[in-house]
Design a protein around this nucleic acid. Sequence first.
DNA 1: TATAATAACTAATATTATTAGTTTTGTAAA
DNA 2: TTTACAAAACTAATAATATTAGTTATTATA
Lengths: 189, 189
Amino acid sequence: MAYRQGLDAETVLQAAIEMADVQGVEQLTLAALAAKLNVKTPSLYNHIKGLPDLRKQLSRRGLMLIKEAMVEAAIGKAEDEALLAAGFAYVIFARKQPGLYEAISSLPDYEDPELKEAGSQVVLFLLRILAPYGLSEEDALHVVRGFRSMVHGFASLEHRNGFRMELERDESLHRMLKTYLRGLRTAAE
Amino acid sequence: MAYRQGLDAETVLQAAIEMADVQGVEQLTLAALAAKLNVKTPSLYNHIKGLPDLRKQLSRRGLMLIKEAMVEAAIGKAEDEALLAAGFAYVIFARKQPGLYEAISSLPDYEDPELKEAGSQVVLFLLRILAPYGLSEEDALHVVRGFRSMVHGFASLEHRNGFRMELERDESLHRMLKTYLRGLRTAAE
DNA sequence: TATAATAACTAATATTATTAGTTTTGTAAA
DNA sequence: TTTACAAAACTAATAATATTAGTTATTATA
């Protein structure tokens, strides 16, 4: 009704995050978002470039927050303990903010420079945790890929109800990471 | 133009798979699919229930095929060698049929009975490969979750260009699986 | 050969994103 | 204090989509 709703880009993004977390990122439409903000759909275009742009913003914010969650969880910890904590933080983030996590894991392409940057931060964080292991740069990068694959795969399958057996899920995650880390300590061949 | 195009459900599904593999599952619209089949959009409804149903069919077919690819790859192999082969088959399938793989990994929910069934087949296959390891049922199920998380996570990240460093990707996959399997051989504690 | 089932069609509707152009409001300069 | 401008909302219109209803032509079958 009233002109000047006091909307800005951040408010729109926050509302979009809420909608995505509650209803899933597929159900996040500009029509529904505008209704939630008591505004007509075209008004959103004063704050976003369009739906694809909004989705990209969700992905970027998600990457930033999930990295922050890992950093936070690893404070005061080192080596295996730090990696374990980071891995759990990743999965717990995906549980708490399923829509945001969906946005991370369904982004069409990492080619976008802003997403690239956000993704790099995750990789750099993991490399720093791995530093005390004394791996070569190449070895460390392979480990980073392994770690990311594990936690992303776990969170993704869990998100889609891919684990249906009656079996503690945290225990599965813990074992996977511990098993991998044990393998890392053991000399190859 | 001509009535009776000779369309049936399987033909429609095949065309949908092709479109998804080439253009991505997001771009798979009934409008485009109908055009490809030289038919008007509503005609598709004689063979499918709607777009969500078609997506579900893609997911189911994808799960069946990826399981078959793993079975095929593991023929004549056992234990670590079989798991390694199955893991690579999984990732290679995702590379060859990106749209179908996307359909597997973006299915909204495994709750659907048909998808449940197809997913169970994958789990049962992995359990059979794991049999010679002499694990308890519970232990084996945790390992299955770990294995699925690893290969799905790897394929998913690779699909979205998540691996951007100059680093051989097959080598990363090989190391991840080997490291995990080595950890599995090593006693816990 | 007649009839029933099926597969295509046209027409219509509802939803969506997006663009263009307009009106109102808040802010800053005169 | 008034005026001018930028910004944020609006209305109206368009194009694309999926879907449903109802119709017509074709095939198969009784």
